[in-house]
Simulated scan of single mutants.
Amino acid sequence: MRALVAAAVGLAAALALVFTITAVGPPAGETSPEPLLTTVPGPKK
Rank of each mutant, 00 (worst) to 15 (best):
M1A: 10
M1N: 11
L4Q: 12
A6Q: 09
A6P: 03
A7L: 15
A7T: 01
V9N: 02
V9I: 15
G10V: 06
G10M: 13
L11H: 01
A12E: 03
A12I: 14
A13E: 08
A13G: 09
L15G: 07
A16S: 12
A16H: 01
L17H: 03
V18A: 15
V18M: 07
V18N: 02
F19E: 03
F19A: 13
T20R: 13
T22V: 10
T22S: 11
A23H: 08
G25P: 08
G25Q: 07
P27R: 12
A28Q: 08
A28P: 12
G29D: 04
G29S: 09
E30H: 08
E30C: 05
E30A: 12
T31W: 05
T31K: 01
T31F: 11
S32L: 14
P33N: 03
P33L: 09
P33V: 01
E34T: 03
E34I: 04
L36D: 06
L36H: 06
L37Q: 08
T38D: 10
T38Y: 12
T39R: 15
T39Y: 12
V40Q: 14
V40W: 02
V40Y: 00
P41V: 12
G42I: 01
G42V: 09
P43Q: 06
P43N: 04
P43R: 05
K44I: 07
K44V: 15
K45T: 02
K45Y: 04
